[in-house]
Simulated assay, not measured.
Amino acid sequence: MSKGSFPEIPRRPGALRGAPLAVSLAGVAAAGLAGWLMWDTGGDSGDGAKHPVGAASATKAPAPSAPKPPASPSSPAPGKPSGSPSQKPSPADDGPLPDGPLKGKVVVVDPGHNIRNSQHTAEINRSVDIGTGHKECDTTGTSTDSGYAEAAFSLDVAHRLRTILRAQGAQVTFTHDGDRPYGPCVTERAEIGNKARADAAVSIHADGSAVGNRGFHVILPAAVRGGRADTGPIVGPSKELGARIAGKFVQATGSAPSNYIGDKTALDERGDLGGLNLSTVPKVFIECGNMRDPQDAALLTDGAWRQKAAQGIANGITDFLRG
């Protein structure tokens, strides 16, 4: 798919949150995403947003013990991430918020997994209540064949995203910043967004599926109700947030929607993820690509591409918040 071929979604009048979806997602899919093949696959079955592994899918990657040192930016080794393994916050990330179009808005950014999770298997494997059932506290995530961890990728993109959003005046809250021994659990990740009364929340991931499965997809909360879970109030605005992020991600990165999840729409609805089930604010997950596919891995390990990914996510959030 060429850059910019995902059709623009008309802006909404009126309130920013809780408004009905202003455009038919089916129309978006038919107009902008036709022609992409769908494959039946899987990945990590934890709340890292992956689907159960199918017979034709790759198994979950071994948990990395620590991110590998970056290759020299001038001549990165094949399959190694270019640029720093975790983008350092800019000075603006710690300073006062500038005036901008997102002034007064709160965005919660959830970097998927934690690079130290593999050192705390008992803690992350303990069961937590997600309202409609029980799942692991957290999972280790996946990695590329060369050992670039999903947790390192997600934190790097999160730092880049924070810098972009703060420059527009948004208050950005992280669920963690690589400073915890493990986790946080999926229940706490949701609670951080709820307590912040976020106007939008995004969880950043990369998939761990079979070779040949390529592209990105955005996971939306299904309508679920049970225990502490009641996504009814957020299903509509979350779909709108997800659709806008998907469209802007295509434009910024040139990446194709997933050819194996989402039925050619780049959107996938899930009711088994605690991070979505327990959210009371508009929230989505984005799987930026498949780390187990060599072509997608070449993008995910490239610092310049990760900057484009962060920009696409930021553009979608901005579009949603500005209505």
Score class of each variant (00 low, 15 high):
186 V>A: 13
187 T>G: 10
187 T>W: 10
187 T>K: 07
188 E>W: 14
188 E>L: 14
188 E>S: 08
188 E>C: 13
189 R>G: 06
189 R>Q: 05
190 A>M: 04
190 A>K: 06
191 E>M: 11
191 E>G: 12
191 E>I: 09
191 E>P: 08
192 I>F: 07
192 I>W: 04
193 G>H: 08
194 N>I: 03
195 K>F: 02
195 K>W: 05
195 K>Q: 13
196 A>E: 02
196 A>P: 04
196 A>V: 05
197 R>G: 11
198 A>P: 00
198 A>V: 06
199 D>V: 07
199 D>S: 03
200 A>T: 11
200 A>Q: 08
201 A>Y: 08
201 A>I: 07
201 A>V: 13
201 A>N: 07
201 A>D: 09
202 V>L: 09
202 V>S: 03
203 S>C: 06
203 S>K: 11
204 I>M: 03
204 I>D: 00
206 A>F: 03
206 A>E: 03
207 D>K: 00
207 D>R: 01
207 D>T: 09
208 G>K: 00
209 S>D: 15
209 S>H: 15
209 S>V: 13
209 S>I: 15
210 A>F: 04
210 A>Y: 04
211 V>D: 14
211 V>C: 11
211 V>I: 14
211 V>G: 10
211 V>H: 06
212 G>Y: 10
212 G>F: 09
212 G>Q: 11
212 G>M: 14
212 G>T: 12
212 G>D: 05
213 N>L: 05
213 N>K: 06
214 R>K: 15
214 R>H: 12
214 R>N: 15
214 R>M: 13
214 R>C: 12
214 R>S: 11
215 G>M: 08
215 G>T: 06
215 G>K: 06
215 G>F: 09
216 F>W: 12
217 H>W: 06
217 H>D: 03
217 H>R: 02
218 V>T: 05
218 V>Y: 00
218 V>G: 01
219 I>G: 00
219 I>L: 05
219 I>Y: 00
219 I>D: 00
219 I>W: 00
220 L>F: 05
220 L>Q: 03
220 L>D: 02
221 P>K: 13
221 P>S: 07
221 P>N: 03
222 A>F: 01
222 A>Q: 11
222 A>C: 12
222 A>S: 12
223 A>E: 06
223 A>S: 09
224 V>P: 07
224 V>D: 04
225 R>D: 03
225 R>A: 14
225 R>G: 13
226 G>C: 10
227 G>E: 13
227 G>I: 15
227 G>V: 14
227 G>L: 09
229 A>H: 08
229 A>I: 14
230 D>E: 03
230 D>Y: 09
230 D>I: 06
231 T>K: 01
231 T>G: 08
232 G>D: 05
232 G>V: 07
234 I>F: 01
235 V>P: 01
235 V>T: 09
235 V>A: 13
236 G>P: 02
236 G>E: 10
237 P>H: 02
237 P>A: 15
237 P>S: 12
237 P>C: 11
237 P>T: 14
237 P>W: 11
237 P>I: 13
237 P>L: 09
238 S>Q: 04
238 S>V: 05
238 S>L: 05
238 S>T: 01
239 K>F: 03
240 E>H: 04
240 E>W: 06
241 L>W: 00
241 L>V: 12
241 L>G: 02
